[in-house]
Design a protein around this nucleic acid. Structure first.
Lengths: 210, 210
DNA sequence: CCGCCACCGAATGTTAACAATCTTGTTTAC
DNA sequence: GTAAACAAGATTGTTAACATTCGGTGGCGG
């Protein structure tokens, strides 16, 4: 399989490579112990995924995402994840319900104990499980890609003071609607959540005009 | 530039290669008069775009899209194009308005003269201009990709009898809302349009159970 | 001291040959 | 007659060498 693509993607998402970093083929091929061709394949794939930027005869770099682009990404996520929430509200089983409620419970305790990193992870898990339960392959795939692209900005959000409390209630509302099987409520709860994220991004962008 | 990727994409979208067709590297490299490496690059890129399927040591084929997948693609398009319609309603200039109204006029005459192919082209132009006017790069790119993926099923839709008339009124409603600057109306008109497309796909799918 | 030009190094892009893998058709043993 | 084993052909995957392009650097001239 094309394991190099996954390795490189993980290394970009985990911050091992930062936006703007050059991705030279020879050093990468040594780092991953493979040929240049495998690295090229990975760079091409990640370019069409939007994580890498390639310029003719000038090599590849980790794509830099502006605030306005991050906002657009979140807007697109908003409508797609609302669709997903509605589908999950329709299709989720009883076991799915208990699993989702359990995740919320863990998030609640993470907020209480001020475990920011743990909360961020659980946040990711909740969104991932919601899209897996939806059965909507297309939307799920698009959202996963969009989350990857905005990963750096997501990180910034997680460490904002007092944000976890708001975020927790929003997520709880989504899960409640899903458990109740209320598609419209699930969708609008998800929209409200991501509108709030967009709001924060806007404020952060305005505060950092250059 | 990576012109081979674009050429191959066009050849797939135009039906020169059909779903299930094998995409062998050597014949393709001869056909496009280039090396195998260029073809490989194109195949990798189009695989992550969802147009091509590649299996380890077994080569690439044109991806086959099921009816249920086409429906999911259209559902995702529905929410994204509604977002686009709203943004366009907000940002479009006076010249944009006259251009959109002009396209509708051409579509009307195409329906009157029963020019199915012309109508289908204008349909594509209208949707493309709407997303270009929106200024929403992210949503525009995602929608373009989704339209590519479902291209074959779109084609089937175009030739359904009596469909152009319905379709025309739906498009006119979208443009009217955009010209009026009414974001909510533009979004819901777009949703209504694509719900109707989904409806047709569902009926076609039910009629072709196997 | 400043600017232009030619050269050089680094990195990507391309090509061709080789290796590994899968499919298919044939042979052989039971 | 059937099924398993084998062999041949075709196709992808990998590697290494070569070509091309771009940016910078140093020297030359004004």
């Amino acid at each position: 399989m094309d394991t190099i693509t996954n390795d490189l993607r993980d290394d970009i998402l985990s911050g091992r490579f930062e936006p703007g970093d050059r991705l030279l083929e020879v050093p990468l091929s040594e780092h991953y112990d493979c040929g240049r061709a495998a690295v090229r394949s990975a760079l091409i794939a990640l370019t069409t995924e939007g994580l890498v930027e390639r310029e003719e005869n000038r090599g590849a770099t980790v794509r830099r995402i502006s605030i306005t682009e991050a906002i657009q990404i979140t807007e697109a996520r908003s409508v797609l994840e609302s669709l997903i929430a509605a589908q999950t509200a329709r299709h989720a089983s009883a076991e799915d319900h208990t699993e989702l409620l359990d995740i919320i419970e863990q998030m609640r305790s993470a907020v209480a104990n001020d475990e920011g990193k743990k909360y961020s992870e659980l946040n990711g898990v909740l969104h991932r499980r919601l899209r897996e339960m939806s059965g909507h392959e297309i939307a799920a795939q698009l959202v996963a890609n969009l989350r990857h692209r905005a990963a750096h900005h997501q990180f910034r959000l997680a460490v904002m003071p007092g944000r976890s409390a708001d975020s927790l209630e929003q997520h709880a509302a989504i899960v409640d609607a899903v458990v109740a099987g209320n598609e419209e409520a699930a969708a609008s709860a998800m929209t409200a959540h991501l509108e709030s994220v967009i709001e924060v991004l806007h404020r952060w962008g305005d505060a950092n005009v250059r």
